[in-house]
Amino acid sequence: MQIFVKGLTGKTTTLEVEPSDTIENVKAKIQDKTGLPPDQQRLIFAGKQLEDGRTLSDYNIQKESTLHIVWR
Rank of each mutant, 00 (worst) to 15 (best):
M1Y: 13
M1I: 10
M1L: 06
M1F: 15
Q2V: 14
Q2P: 07
I3E: 01
I3H: 01
I3N: 01
F4V: 05
V5W: 02
V5K: 01
K6H: 14
K6I: 14
K6T: 13
K6L: 10
K6A: 07
G7A: 09
L8S: 09
L8I: 12
L8A: 10
T9E: 11
T9I: 10
G10C: 08
G10A: 08
K11W: 15
T12R: 10
T12Y: 11
T13R: 06
T13E: 12
T13D: 08
T14F: 07
T14V: 14
L15I: 12
L15F: 06
L15D: 00
E16R: 10
E16I: 12
E18K: 13
E18N: 13
E18P: 03
P19Q: 07
P19S: 08
P19D: 06
S20M: 10
D21A: 06
T22R: 07
T22M: 07
I23Q: 01
I23R: 00
N25G: 08
N25M: 15
V26Q: 00
V26H: 00
V26G: 00
K27C: 02
K27E: 01
K27T: 02
K27H: 02
A28E: 10
I30Q: 01
I30W: 05
I30N: 01
I30A: 02
I30K: 00
Q31C: 09
Q31Y: 15
D32K: 14
D32M: 14
D32W: 12
D32H: 15
D32S: 13
K33M: 12
T34R: 03
T34V: 08
L36V: 13
L36Q: 06
L36T: 07
L36D: 03
P37R: 12
P37D: 08
P37I: 07
Q40N: 10
Q40W: 12
Q41W: 15
R42D: 11
L43Y: 02
I44F: 15
I44R: 06
F45I: 03
F45S: 03
A46L: 12
A46G: 11
A46M: 14
G47F: 04
K48Q: 14
K48I: 14
K48Y: 09
Q49T: 14
Q49G: 07
Q49L: 15
Q49D: 14
L50H: 00
L50A: 01
L50V: 04
E51N: 06
D52T: 06
D52A: 06
G53Y: 09
G53F: 10
G53M: 08
G53T: 09
G53R: 08
G53C: 06
R54P: 04
T55S: 07
T55D: 03
L56N: 00
L56P: 01
Y59W: 02
N60P: 03
N60R: 06
N60Q: 10
I61Q: 01
I61T: 01
I61S: 00
I61F: 03
Q62L: 10
Q62Y: 09
Q62T: 14
K63S: 15
E64I: 03
E64A: 09
E64Y: 14
E64G: 15
S65P: 01
S65I: 04
T66I: 13
L67V: 09
L67W: 01
L67Q: 00
H68C: 09
H68D: 09
I69W: 05
I69M: 11
I69Y: 04
I69L: 15
V70A: 09
V70G: 06
V70T: 10
W71Y: 12
